[in-house]
Amino acid sequence: MPPTNPRVALFATCLVDMFRPSVGFATVKLLEEAGCEIHVPEAQTCCGQPAWNSGDRETARDIAKQVIVAFEGYDYTVLPSGSCGATIAKDYPAMFDEGDPWRIRAEALARKTFEITSFLTDVMGVETVAAEVPRLVTYHDSCSGLRSLGVKAQPRKLLASAGVSVREMEESEVCCGFGGTFCVKYPDISNSMVNDKVTNATATGAEMLLAGDLGCLMNMAGKASRDGKQIEVRHVVEVLAGMTDTPAIGEGQG
């Protein structure tokens, strides 16, 4: 059982911090509704995944230490991202050798780090969210959240509680082609992959395309707008928090 009012540290993630703060605020709203006490550690930058996945172990370790120090004092660390969540929950322990005191600290932080929909459902036991959003959406299962953290049913369950209908697309579990640095290292392949993804998403006839990772969302939104496809692309927490009055990702403010 979690503490009644757990002290939760929000790791906004670099993309949310820079590109879509409203995802951060929506996450805060959901956490508060679930009875959490929110903290936003000042010393957060990035989780270090770009370095880790580029083979730069030393930088990745340095950043991991910085994150561990900033976040280990709280009951939980929660992120609006399965990708960054998996970096902390799965990769941090692997960055340090057995016997290294940092390994123990990394493992301790890993155990209490969660992606937001998984945290609400699996840890806080949230059954319903407050928002009512009677819209038809389709959901892209971002890779790290799905395969490293087992995020699949949780967002769907919460969406259903908000009156959202999910119409599944073909290949909802197939990568959108973002892949961090992959999308700029191999833009042609990435573009073809996101083309498939947006084609599958729009084929459902859904009004909205949701996912739990901003990298994937920016990729899909960018493709949809380039190809003139009419689908509102949003982070799942925006819908769950009932915060759909802001322009969707890639949409202008007029």
């Binding site: 906004a12 949310v16 911090d17 820079m18 590109f19 879509r20 703060p21 409203s22 951060g24 605020f25 936003v40 000042e42 957060q44 999308c183 700029v184 290292k185 833009p187 042609d188 990435s190 573009n191 996101v194 083309n195 920016m218 990729n219 939104a221 960018g222 493709k223 707008s225 380039r226 802001t246 322009p247 990702i249 890639g250 949409e251 202008g252 403010q253």
Partner: peptide, 27 residues
């Protein structure tokens, strides 16, 4: 709400737009 081209990001913007940031940072 988006960029059709951005310096240093042609890999991205070759086939898709780059969504613009909302404004100030979350932090």
């Amino acid at each position: 709400g988006r960029f059709a081209a951005l310096p240093l990001a042609s890999g991205w913007t070759g086939g898709r737009d780059m969504p613009a940031p909302e404004g100030d940072t979350f932090m």
